[in-house]
Simulated scan of single mutants.
Amino acid sequence: MDPNAGKKNLVNRYSREELEARLMAEDFKRITVSFYRYVILDDPQAMRDRLYQEWTELNCLGRIYVAREGINAQMNVPEQNWEQFVKELHAKEEFKDIPFKIAVEDDGKSFLKLVIKVRDRIVADGLADDHYDVTNVGTHLDAESWNQALEEGAIVVDMRNHYESEIGHFENSILPQAETFREELPEVLEKLKGKESDKILLYCTGGIRCEKTSAFLKHHGFTDVNQLHGGIIDYARQIKTKELPNKFHGKNFVFDERLGESISHEVISHCHQCGEPCDVHVNCANVACNLLFIQCPTCAEKYDKCCSEECMEVQHLSAEEQKELRKGKKSQKRFHSHRRWGDLHPETKS
């Protein structure tokens, strides 16, 4: 008997073009949602397969990570299947009453396919399992309490990557210039050195990175650690429903096809090529580069959606020539040695 029998339908096998066509042809709405929970899963692979089967039947799309320490999900659900989705998820003891963060701006096109991966961590921190207690977290603040703490002068730290905070952040925030969360933890610890008794406020997209950071800081002797409940996503919902002042400036970066959603409708960042106000992230059209950067419509046309003239030249080569160019370590070194726009073009770095 084929040992993979029964699992052949547990992965997506359609091309991007096919997936885009299917999504555009849909005549119903999708709800974009994110959620996470730190909970011990005895068999992450079995949970992954079970969720994939259930969510495929409900026609859900998204990117989900499952690990022994819990689940981290960003996905969308057909509106007509929402109640069934919630019912089935909450019926699992591990995810009972798990809170949801609904997207602020949602056209239903946030994801093209369903991807559920088993990982060592739902948020990679580079630390050993016994380094600190991830359940010993800080105090969760709602939007009103958060605003009050900001007004009282508490130290506020953005726990997202540099490219996320560039297009939007809370006023007077410490903005680490890290590329990854594992790089950010030691950087934040160094920036907060000597402030172990001060009131610390942490925020991120949906709350999951702050959950770990608060436990990390408490482990290192910080006594008044607080985090924004539900992250920026839920903050936007709360200030709207409760008619509270908005302390967030700009756009919230999201890890799906949208790459961002407006919170204050201010544009606080600039095109990395011409310097004009812009907050639209794109990936370089040269797939061997794929640099994530900010590009305005004028520069997108000028550079053919590429980050540089060099990449534009590559983009104009035939498919076979591009494939040959991507082979080997020389190509990797050529196009991946500059992961940040400011490193590639220091004269445009703000």
Rank of each mutant, 00 (worst) to 15 (best):
G70P: 04
Y52V: 06
A91S: 13
L112Q: 08
V123Q: 02
K113C: 02
I98F: 14
E17L: 11
A124V: 03
Q80F: 02
I102L: 10
D120Y: 14
E144W: 14
E18K: 12
V77K: 03
L61Q: 04
S145E: 11
E26S: 07
D125R: 00
V86K: 13
A91F: 01
V123I: 12
D49G: 04
R13L: 10
I40L: 09
V39A: 11
N147M: 14
A149C: 12
A67I: 05
V137G: 00
H140A: 13
D97T: 13
D42N: 06
D129M: 07
R63W: 11
A73Q: 11
N76M: 07
K29I: 13
G62P: 10
T139V: 12
R68Q: 03
Y52F: 13
M75W: 12
D97L: 10
N72M: 09
E105R: 01
D142E: 11
W146G: 07
T139Q: 05
A103N: 13
F95N: 06
K101S: 09
L41N: 02
Y14V: 07
W146P: 05
A46Q: 12
F28A: 07
Y38M: 01
E20F: 03
V118R: 14
D130S: 15
R48A: 05
A143Y: 14
F28L: 08
V66C: 03
R13K: 06
M75L: 15
E144V: 15
L58A: 03
L19P: 00
E144M: 15
T139R: 02
I40S: 13
F85W: 08
D142L: 09
Y14P: 01
E18H: 06
V104A: 03
R16H: 07
N147A: 11
V118H: 02
H90E: 00
L112K: 15
I40P: 03
E93S: 00
E79H: 08
G70K: 04
A128I: 01
E20P: 00
R121T: 03
H90D: 04
D129T: 07
I71T: 10
V86S: 05
Q74A: 04
G62I: 09
Q74M: 10
N81T: 01
D125Y: 15
V66E: 05
I31R: 02
E79D: 15
R16V: 14
S34Q: 11
K117L: 14
Y36W: 14
L23H: 02
D120I: 04
L61K: 12
F35H: 15
G108N: 00
E83K: 12
F100H: 07
D142F: 15
F35I: 13
G138D: 06
Q45K: 09
K101H: 10
L51P: 06
Q53R: 13
D49T: 08
F28G: 03
E54T: 03
Q53P: 04
A103F: 10
S34L: 15
H131I: 03
R16E: 06
W82F: 13
G62F: 08
E18T: 11
